[in-house]
Amino acid sequence: MLTHYLILQFKLLNRNIRDFGMHPLLAYVLIFGLIAGLGTLIFQRMPNYAPYIIIGICVLLQMRLSQKQRTDFLQIVYGNKTKHLLRITENLIISIPFVVLLLVENQYIAAVALPIASAILAFVDLSSKSIVLPTPFSKSPYEFTVGFRKSFLFILMVYGLSVISVCVNNLNLGLFSLFVLCIICTTYYGKVENEYYVWIFAESPNKYLTHKILTAIKNTFLMVFPMMALLTAFSPDNWWIVLLITAIGMILVIAFLLAAYSTYPPGEIGFLELIFILAVFIPPFVLVVIPYFYVRSINRLKNTLV
């Protein structure tokens, strides 16, 4: 029963990755690369806090599987005992790359603590009737409204990191936080919405995209502004670096947005993700792909918007 469930989950995950327009194998390589890269960077920049941050990131990911609606379903289908077994297994699987990272960094206590915390978390059910989190983005729907709420804990962590950067007099760490915050904003455009939410707009594809881009720029600025202000106040001479990173972040947000709509309706791309990954790792290339994705998005939206 346990094996069957895990195989099913693996299949569902692969389907979701394919729907996103990426080959699963490529996605796994990227995820492991991201964890290894970010983890190493965190250990380099702030060795004292790194184990806590790594454990925190892992727990945040595991919490996504602890939603009450989901755990209730597991209980109804498999019964209480098997549900707990399943949840422990899921959490332990998620913790594997983080435990490996901690072991590589010689953080043995944290490497032991993480699986224990993961197993304990398997017994926690998070109610979906959570308090509605107010956002400053509600008036310009919807990506930032939803994204802000979904990534709230990550945002808190990144802002916490920026405050620490000021406390430990490390501007680079602050700039890194700023960049990560922009990357969080890009994830809000990681997937194109259901066709109904495109269809309802009484706008041409051109106006629709322009409107989306302007909203993305405005909301990204709203999101990063307090951090920009903090870092600029901390290091006034380096205001231009803060501005440059924000600008790069905004360009990435726009690139993500256009890349997503260039696959509309989702599930038909092959080489696009490769172009996009290239663009992310070779920043100037982003400026080249943005017009390409824009034209492609317009063509894709023409079927739905008049």
Binding site: S138, Y142, V146, R149, N194, Y196, Y197, I200
Partner: peptide, 30 residues
Amino acid sequence: KNHLGLLFAEPYFFDKITGEEYIRLLCYAR
């Protein structure tokens, strides 16, 4: 399409969006 109110048999909703935000989204779109 710009003058049409379409109700699906099984409407789709985003996670983490309130009822009021949903109404505002649909009106904003028009």
